[in-house]
Amino acid sequence: MSENSVEIEEATKLYGKLVAVDKVSLQIKCGEVYALVGANGAGKSSLMRALVGLAQLDSGRIAICGDDTRKNSLRAKRRTGYLPEELLFYERLTGKEYLRLVAGLKERGAAQVEEEIEFYELTSVADKWIGGYSLGMRKKLGLAAAMIGDPQVLILDEPLNGLDVEMMRKLRDRIKQEQERGCAFLISSHVMDFVERASNRVGIMRAGRLVAEGTPAELRRQAALGDAPFEDVFFRLAQRDLSA
């Protein structure tokens, strides 16, 4: 098996004449948390959708744990968990029924469903219809669905939207646990504090290109901003590209 859990080579995605992802290459090692940051429309979600097979690249290659997502899409999907930005559920299924469905489709037993429900504090609403869930509950349900099956790669698109502070901390702890198990993460988020504290490496995207990459400390050095908030580091590096 490859040392890298995720390998992206020269990935390019076009929407008509618009270049959404422009020759992006990156690797994520086993047990590494990689955060993608960038403005809206920078190409983060397009890249993530290509990773999970919801979009096809116009050129380039993506491999999950050594499996090419085009040639061995099913094997790649078996190793991947995904939290989409836009959550669509069966409104008249209960949370538990939905998670059981996902577990069934991931060829897993229902045992983990109960664990995830408990972890995400959904016990009290697990037998209620999803249509009555709040945004935060929906997000927790999406996270639980992504983590069912103990995937080796977790791709989380805006996982913090709608979560309360307590759950954000809990999620960060869970990410650490999964990291120790060898799970690789690709996370997109606008919450810079979370990005800095949770990730091993950060990639800054702008207009479809990866304009800066490194550990949070390395990016601070590149931006020459020692103790400033990480948000300033992001702006400095993104603007540097603009002026280049």
Binding site: L54, L74, Y82, P84, L88
Partner: peptide, 14 residues
């Protein structure tokens, strides 16, 4: 399109 089944495209379903 705009269906919950959209998520199944990311799961190992042929």
């Amino acid at each position: 399109v705009r269906h919950p089944e959209n998520y199944f495209d990311t799961l190992p379903v042929v």
